Amino acid sequence: MKTIKTFVAVLALTSAFGAFAGQTVTATGSTLDDTEAKIAAQAQEMGASYKITSAFNRDQVHMTAELSK
């Protein structure tokens, strides 16, 4: 029984970390700094670091970033 509980715990932890890997977040704002601040806040909320993967500006700035633990 203890082995089964250990296996289930390991499986749950593995699934949680696997689901996080490569997660992306997006934000929009009026300036690059404003939009990056929104990305940084999302990353901090999730306890992660981020790498901006794309950004473009038309009427607003749209930014996408990849999170990593």
Rank of each mutant, 00 (worst) to 15 (best):
R58N: 13
L11H: 10
A37H: 13
F20M: 15
T3V: 07
E66L: 13
E45K: 13
G47P: 07
I4W: 07
D33M: 00
M1S: 15
K69G: 08
T3M: 11
S49E: 14
G18D: 05
R58Q: 11
H62P: 05
F20P: 08
V61I: 12
S30M: 12
T64M: 00
A40L: 05
K69Q: 01
A55V: 11
S30V: 10
N57V: 09
T35S: 04
K2R: 14
G18C: 12
S68D: 06
T64D: 07
V8P: 02
V25E: 09
A55S: 14
S30Q: 09
L67K: 04
E66G: 02
G29M: 06
G22Q: 08
D34E: 15
T24H: 01
E45M: 01
S68Q: 15
A40G: 02
A9M: 10
M63Y: 00
M63V: 14
Q42N: 06
G18L: 09
A41E: 03
V10Y: 06
A55R: 11
A12L: 12
S54H: 06
V61S: 00
A37D: 14
A55T: 12
L67N: 08
E36A: 02
T14R: 05
A16Q: 11
I39K: 01
T31W: 04
G29E: 06
A12N: 04
T28V: 12
T53N: 01
A9P: 03
V25N: 05
E36N: 10
E36W: 07
K51V: 08
A21F: 08
T28S: 15
A19Y: 03
D33S: 11
F7V: 11
D59P: 00
D59N: 09
Q44C: 01
F56M: 10
A27Q: 03
L11V: 11
M63E: 00
I39P: 08
A21R: 15
K2C: 10
I4S: 14
D34H: 14
F7G: 05
H62A: 06
E66M: 04
A41H: 06
Q42S: 01
A55G: 04
G29Q: 10
G18E: 03
I52P: 06
A40F: 07
F56Q: 12
D59S: 10
T64N: 04
S68K: 13
A37S: 14
A48E: 03
A37Y: 03
A65T: 03
F7A: 14
T24F: 01
A48R: 14
Y50K: 07
A19N: 12
Q42C: 06
I39S: 03
A19W: 11
D59H: 04
G18A: 14
T31S: 15
I39R: 05
R58D: 04
M1G: 15
A16L: 15
E66Y: 06
A65G: 07
Q44Y: 03
T14W: 02
